[in-house]
Amino acid sequence: MGELATEKHTKYILQIEKKKDDNIESVLTEHLRINGAYWGLTTLDILGNLKAVEQEAVVSWVLSCQHESGGFGGNVGHDPHLLYTLSAIQILTLFNKTHILNIPKLTSYISALQNEDGSFSGDQYGEIDTRFSYLAICSLALLKSLDKINVEKAVKYIISCKNLDGGFGCTPGAESHAGQIFCCVGALAITGSLHYVDKDLLGWWLCERQVKSGGLNGRPEKLPDVCYSWWVLSSLIMIDRVGWIDKEKLVKFILECQDFENGGISDRPDDAVDVFHTYFGVAGLSLLEYPGLKPIDPAYALPVDVVNRIFLE
């Protein structure tokens, strides 16, 4: 097992932007470039290398993804959606630049997406999912504007998606999934509502996501994947049950998924790397207290110092 190849990963992230035109992966992920930017930039910050980025260029590009409505698209010219709006806010928060936003406009875009039952639509086209509850709640909290929505109803809706295993699904009745659990537990953590979570039951389900190789899967009887190092770990930390997994084995699994030659981290050992898994691997290592990494906050998915700067002032 090698160590974390910090320099290689930094280089990998920095070069993604440059070769975007002729590369099939970047063409196929063009619609979520703003998520990619958030994953890459947050990874750089955790690695201690955010300074390597031209901040002004990034900020002005992010702003060019904003629509008249206040919401952000995944790229220039793409329709706005909560999925991209949170990433935009997170990027500006990383750079301590949210003051350049028209906050009333942005928060009214988000709060208008809350439905009568407390749930959130992702955009005007009406898809409902607890992922969108998290996106809205996290966005508004980062802008210190949680009072713009009905938090109590939002919480009640999330609770209505709780399952027999203590986990949460996208809508009432939908199966638990680690990514979805992160969204629900994260939203409940931010709104001081974790008492609704059955921590022992959910904690047991989550800790049983660790498979023999040390990696974590997202649902029972599925393959492990580095991305669950984030979804499962952050949830376990928020409910204070992270001691229930073998942390050393997980560190080993993540490190084995690195591309030592060209940088980047993949879903499983020897698969193709991407910025999404690079982020989840590095963020996971940060949650596992891997030496030399900035600690990351499990609920807001931003470095702890960035979150503290917002709330402890």
């Binding site: 974790l194 930390i237 402890l312």
Partner: peptide
Amino acid sequence: SHTIDTRRYQCSSPMSHTIDY
């Protein structure tokens, strides 16, 4: 002794909107 605080969201704090700064 730890960089990650597993009690961060089990306590009263401005991050969880349970107390003000």
